[in-house]
């Protein structure tokens, strides 16, 4: 009976005098909101798993996609995401410390810990924005085939990835982006890629060291590298140049990978953003002494639950998007 019954209750059990499970109304509703939100996130992550299982042989390898660290050049897989994870766990810790200080009614300590939590959240959202920008901008560029498969390029001598600019042959052309201001007002087109299909194809043909890497994963767990003859053969399937990623195209591989990246990290980032806003509101309430007058800091505790939940979700996103 110890699990549910509240003992030593002076007030009557009915008429709202009693707290079921010894949790206040607000706290319990926060828990059930978190539960429903957890189901939404698991819906997203499981849909990701579904699509990944569907294309298990050709899914992009996350280590090869997320290799950048701000202010550093080179190939550093995972380091930046690990840093982001650490920032979020750290801001979770300052949040628990705020809750703990709230229990002891230390207004000054709560203020400081809430401030640090907000700063941690802002650093995380900023990092995510940077990660998005890098992902959208793209890295090496690729070709897309008629069937929507991605062909990437590798240097046969070194085994390193080749960017389109490393080998493409510029062909003089007067073709410019058509904008609505220069013609019929209702017709325009997207920005051109830095090289067009003919230039990339000519570049591959004239450089013997360029090989195509397909999406398919071989037995060693690496993307399949075609021979020079197969490369020239495969080149005929290409229909367009892809640079960077958006909801329709993705130079890193399967388009679904980019779609899920935007939806899952975007949905999570939105949670962090709202969490920061709520934390700022609570921070000002603490500064103004609202909870001091109220006699308890339960509001900090409830907001803390939401903030930890955001951290909890990130732990899963980190595993299923970047590690597994």
């Amino acid at each position: 009976m110890d699990t549910t019954i509240t003992n030593n209750q002076a007030t009557p059990v009915w008429n709202g005098g009693n707290k079921p499970l010894e949790a206040s109304y607000g706290k319990m509703m926060m828990w059930f909101f978190i539960l429903s939100d957890a189901l939404t996130f698991s819906g997203f992550l499981v849909a990701y798993g579904f699509s990944r299982f569907k294309f298990i042989e050709s899914w992009p390898i996350a280590d090869e996609v997320f290799t950048h660290v701000p202010f550093f050049h080179g190939n550093y897989p995972m380091y930046y995401v690990a840093f982001m994870t650490f920032i979020l766990i750290m801001s979770s810790v300052t949040m628990v410390l705020a809750v703990d200080a709230g229990h002891k009614m230390k207004q000054k300590a709560v203020t400081w810990y809430m401030f640090l939590t907000v700063i941690g959240g802002i650093i995380f959202v900023g990092s995510q924005a940077w990660e998005w920008a890098t992902f959208i901008k793209g890295d090496f560029g690729a070709l897309e085939t008629k069937g929507g498969r991605i062909l990437q390029f590798v240097d046969a001598n070194t085994g390193d990835r080749l960017a389109l600019r490393d080998f493409s042959t510029p062909i003089a052309s007067e073709r410019v982006q058509h904008e609505s201001k220069n013609g019929i007002w209702f017709s325009s087109e997207k920005a051109h890629t830095s090289f067009n299909l003919a230039e990339v194809v000519a570049g591959v043909k004239s450089n013997d060291n360029v090989l195509i890497r397909t999406e398919m994963i071989n037995e060693e767990g690496e993307k399949t590298l075609l021979s020079r003859a197969a490369t020239l053969d495969k080149l005929q399937d290409a229909v367009q140049v892809v640079e960077g990623a958006n909801l329709i195209q993705n130079e890193y591989g399967s388009r679904l990978f980019a779609d899920f990246f935007f939806f899952i990290t975007g949905f999570h980032g939105f949670h962090v953003f709202t969490g920061v806003l709520i934390n700022i509101i609570i921070f000002f309430n603490v500064v103004l002494g609202t909870y001091e007058r109220r006699g308890h800091y339960e509001m900090v505790e409830k907001v803390g639950l939401y903030w930890h939940f955001v951290d909890l979700v990130w732990v899963f996103v980190f595993t299923f998007f970047y590690l597994v």
């Binding site: 699990t3 809750v99 930890h308 909890l312």
Partner: peptide, 9 residues
């Protein structure tokens, strides 16, 4: 962190 440990089972 979410102190479920301290809540009622």
């Amino acid at each position: 962190f979410m102190h479920l440990r301290d809540e009622k089972a």
